[in-house]
C-alpha cells in the first residue's frame, strides 16, 4: 500500500465521519437547508474518495487519467454553489449598484483559483487541461459566492454572521480540491497529498462551524 492510498483512506475516514455527524445534526425537519446541502457536499467528496480507494483495491493498481472519483470534487463544488447561490445569494445581494465593489472583490476568489490551477498545471506539466478545467468548473463560481458571503455586510440578518465561518472553510475546500485535482491529473504526489489533507481537515472544520451556525439559524 503506497503513501497516497494511506492519505486517501485517512481523508475518507475524516470526511465520512464529518458527513455522518452532519447527517445526524442537520438531516431533520426544521433544520436549515443550507446546512443540509453543506453536509451533502461533504458526502459527495467522501464518496469520490471511496471510489478512488475501492478502484485501487479492486484493480490492484493506482488509477491514471480520468475516473468517476473525480466527480466527487465536481459534485462537492456544485453542492457548495447550491448552498450559497441557491439559498443565500438572493437574500444577500439585491442586485443594486451599491454593492458593485463587493462583487468585484468577490471575483478575486475564482481568479486566484484559476491562477493556482494554471500555475500548478504548467509547473507539473499537466496534459489533460480540458478534463481538469471541466471538473473544476463549478468550484470557481462556488468560491466566488463564498467570498461574496464573507465580504458582504451582515445587514440585519443574524444568519449571515452565523454562516461566515462555514464560508471560510468552503473557500479553503475550493482551493484544496483545485490543488488535489491538479496534482492527481498531472501526477504530482506532493500536490495531491497537500490537496487531499487540506480538504479533509477543512470539511471537518466546516461541519463543526456549521453546527455552531446551525444554532443561530434553525429555520
Amino acid at each position: 500500500m503506497n503513501f497516497i492510498m494511506i492519505v486517501k483512506m485517512a481523508a475518507f475516514v475524516f470526511s465520512a465521519a464529518a458527513f455522518t455527524v452532519g447527517c445526524l445534526e442537520f438531516m431533520r425537519k426544521g433544520k436549515a437547508m443550507y446546512f443540509q446541502i453543506i453536509t451533502l457536499s461533504v458526502g459527495c467528496y467522501s464518496l469520490g474518495l471511496l471510489f478512488s480507494i475501492i478502484m485501487t483495491i479492486c484493480t490492484g493498481t493506482a488509477q491514471t487519467g480520468y475516473n468517476s472519483g473525480y466527480l466527487g470534487i465536481t459534485g462537492c463544488g456544485l453542492f457548495l454553489l447550491s448552498a450559497n447561490y441557491g439559498q443565500v445569494n438572493g437574500i444577500l445581494d439585491d442586485g443594486t449598484s451599491g454593492f458593485r465593489k463587493k462583487r468585484v472583490t468577490a471575483a478575486a476568489a475564482p481568479l486566484a483559483l484559476l491562477v493556482l490551477w494554471s500555475a500548478g498545471a504548467v509547473i507539473c506539466g499537466m496534459k489533460n487541461y480540458f478534463t481538469s478545467f471541466m471538473l473544476l468548473l463549478p468550484v470557481f463560481p462556488a468560491s466566488y459566492f463564498c467570498l461574496k458571503v464573507l465580504v458582504f455586510p451582515d445587514m440585519d440578518f443574524a444568519f449571515l454572521k452565523s454562516i461566515k465561518p462555514c464560508n471560510v472553510c468552503m473557500l479553503i475546500i475550493c482551493a484544496a480540491v483545485t490543488v488535489q485535482l491538479t496534482g492527481e491529473l498531472s501526477g504530482s504526489i506532493v500536490l495531491e497529498i497537500a490537496g487531499i489533507s487540506a480538504a479533509a481537515v477543512s470539511v471537518c472544520l466546516m461541519i463543526r462551524a456549521a453546527m455552531n451556525g446551525g444554532r443561530a439559524w434553525t429555520v
Binding site: F51, S68, G86
Partner: peptide, 23 residues
Amino acid sequence: KLFITGSFALLMTAIIYHSIFNC
C-alpha cells in the same frame, strides 16, 4: 437556482455511487 445546481450535484453523486457499485 437550487434545482439547477442541486440536481447536477445529486447527479454527480449518483454517478459515483453507481460506479462504486459496478466496481
